[in-house]
Computed example of a mutant assay.
Amino acid sequence: MDKNCSAASNYLVSFNTIALVPIRIENKLYTRVIENHTEFLVKMKPSSIIKKSLIYYGNSYKLATFYSREVIGRVHKPPLLISHDYGVPLIMFPTLSGESEGSIWFSSSAIDFFTFDSHNRCLVHFTNSFVLPVNVSQSTMCRQHTFSHFLTRGFQKKRTKIDHPFSQSILMPTNKTTKK
């Protein structure tokens, strides 16, 4: 990525977003936004992009964190449901604490698999064939990706209940006959 290129001043996470990578240029923290077919710099911290996106889609960081913990339990670094479209959730997960300036945020649905190179760096392979080397342990990546899967499944279960509210068996009174 050319660090001398101009940077956008604003960005919202979308289904095209695959990663938000913090990058420091001249003592300022920017975000390297990697999308399905392009990448660029944004003059915002990754956590600020996440928070702004949540607000744009009608949520907040606090409520998204609360929802995540309701579904998967009280975990450190919970993945967040940013938005959804036609029942498909857009879930992002951090590599560090969500508030940390060094945290990389990944779209869970954009990840294909992980490998490791000879320098013990995690190589994140995305569904668009892009590979991003990151200094994150295998256990962290697996844990975060697994929690994202649990959040996706929890979201889908709640959607099913909304889409089919009467599919659960309803206790009906039994028809008792009385003797005369």
Results as ranks from 00 to 15, higher is better:
residue 112 D to K: 12
residue 58 G to P: 00
residue 160 T to D: 13
residue 144 Q to V: 01
residue 123 L to P: 00
residue 15 F to I: 05
residue 149 H to K: 15
residue 8 A to N: 13
residue 92 M to G: 02
residue 11 Y to E: 08
residue 159 R to M: 10
residue 103 S to V: 05
residue 52 K to T: 09
residue 22 P to C: 08
residue 6 S to H: 12
residue 122 C to H: 03
residue 88 V to M: 05
residue 173 P to I: 12
residue 61 Y to A: 02
residue 73 G to R: 09
residue 26 E to P: 01
residue 165 P to M: 07
residue 30 Y to F: 07
residue 180 K to C: 06
residue 31 T to R: 04
residue 157 K to T: 05
residue 103 S to R: 03
residue 139 S to E: 12
residue 7 A to R: 06
residue 170 I to V: 10
residue 165 P to T: 04
residue 22 P to H: 11
residue 81 L to Q: 01
residue 22 P to Q: 08
residue 175 N to T: 12
residue 106 F to Y: 03
residue 91 I to V: 01
residue 25 I to Y: 01
residue 91 I to D: 00
residue 178 T to I: 15
residue 167 S to N: 11
residue 68 S to L: 00
residue 145 H to D: 05
residue 163 D to W: 06
residue 12 L to G: 04
residue 20 L to H: 00
residue 124 V to C: 02
residue 144 Q to S: 10
residue 26 E to C: 12
residue 176 K to A: 14
residue 115 T to F: 01
residue 150 F to W: 09
residue 105 W to I: 04
residue 180 K to A: 10
residue 136 V to Q: 09
residue 52 K to E: 07
residue 171 L to N: 15
residue 26 E to S: 14
residue 65 T to N: 11
residue 16 N to L: 08
residue 78 P to K: 10
residue 176 K to T: 12
residue 86 Y to A: 15
residue 120 N to L: 15
residue 146 T to C: 08
residue 21 V to L: 12
residue 114 F to H: 06
residue 108 S to R: 08
residue 133 P to M: 04
residue 107 S to E: 04
residue 114 F to R: 06
residue 164 H to Y: 08
residue 68 S to N: 03
residue 44 M to K: 14
residue 24 R to G: 06
residue 50 I to W: 01
residue 53 S to E: 02
residue 98 G to S: 09
residue 7 A to S: 06
